[in-house]
Design a protein around this nucleic acid. Sequence first.
RNA 1: CGGGAAGUAGCUCAGCUUGGUAGAGCGCUUGGUUUGGGACCAAGAUGCCGCGGGUUCAAAUCCUGUCUUCCCGACCA
Length: 409
Amino acid sequence: MKQSKFFIPTLRETPKDAQIASHRILLKGGYIKQVAAGIYDYLPLAYKIIKKIENIVREEINKTEAVEVLMPALQPKDLWVESGRWEKYGKELMRLEDRNERSFCLGPTHEEVITAMVRDYVNSYKKLSIGLYQIQTKFRDEFRPRFGLMRGREFLMFDLYTFHKDEEDLDVWYKKVREAYKRILERLSLDYRIIGAGSGNIGGNASEEFMVLCDIGEDTIVYSDSSSFALNQEICDLKEGDPSPDGKGVIKYAKGIEVGHIFKLGTTYSELMKATFIDQDQQTKPIVMGCYGIGISRLLMAILEQHSTDEKPIWPKEVTPFDLHIIPLGDNLEQGLKVYEKLSKEYDCLIDDRDERAGVKFQDADLIGVRYRIVVGRKASEGIYEFQDLLKGEKKELKLAEIEKELKK
RNA sequence: CGGGAAGUAGCUCAGCUUGGUAGAGCGCUUGGUUUGGGACCAAGAUGCCGCGGGUUCAAAUCCUGUCUUCCCGACCA
């Protein structure tokens, strides 16, 4: 990809509205643009990373045997009346009417729609269990959107719903998803904790949150310093320094960003919405449900919070927008393009083919945050280039063959 | 929704107190000189001063209404 064509409108000055590092990087680096409060454009660089995050989620979730679907964002009032949430959800639900004054909402989540889908097709224990998921834009009219993509009114979310004949079967899938979530967050190189949590107004009886550790997080994690005990402070009154309830270690607090949540919903929705099946014993029973979410756009910020220093990102391997950033300086563009052609056979390369000064190119490259950088400069005529590894902070003068060897390591 | 702050060029902001008809830096265009960490010189282009109403001979400036954005709080998959 040529940088002159890959719309990356970096800024010199950071817009004053950005309060946290990840938000400033996203704005300054030309990743996102604000359209309204809590509503953003994803520019090419951010969207490329988003798609990588989505695909990691898909790969790991597919291993649980769940299948991808796409449901409508626009949902009819009737379904929400059935579940009782047309009233309960309150002002956070984005409501609107069509030309015939029929009421709709923009989906903040999809329990209603998917339960209605499944109840019409699944009426025997023989068809259970199944898991269906989607990655889609969600709408929530937040009281107070903030921090860029951290709490938006429109955001990208992965949501999975599983359907079972009993609690035992739900437990099996729940555990599979829990493991999948761990693999996802590990592939994203995130430091996180799994904590017990309340289940909010979604209903149901058990839930765990996946919290990415970070000082600017909006939630407080209450955890033991020497066991896996961890709870959300919302449902816990332990103080720092208290002994842990499991007898191991003492209580500490940490701030976290909630990037994922898994629920055992039970039969809350299936009862309200009459999603039943005939069991082996010929009894009609409500389908037992689980639901699971991951904030895709929020993950983008969480990754930045943990993988940037001094407001310069270095994207983790699995989500880096490009494998290599080739930067020709002076009149070395032609030579740079040769290097680009060659390496592009094996790597996803970005070449800065713009007619800019070195300083401008380096500043922009720092904002783009590709770990490996090849500077085609003074010694280019001898076939020697500067190979930089931003993560290690190393710079080496190497020939192309040596660079290829370095990359293989 | 309560409290605070702010809306002036693409971006960051000055001008408002004390009304006189629009500014700076960066960016952009053209020419030249530069060329390894946001270059320099010269010449340009760019504004419903958020929007409406009022006061006034005259409003970016004063009064008023309204919209928008940000911060703090309460709410929350």
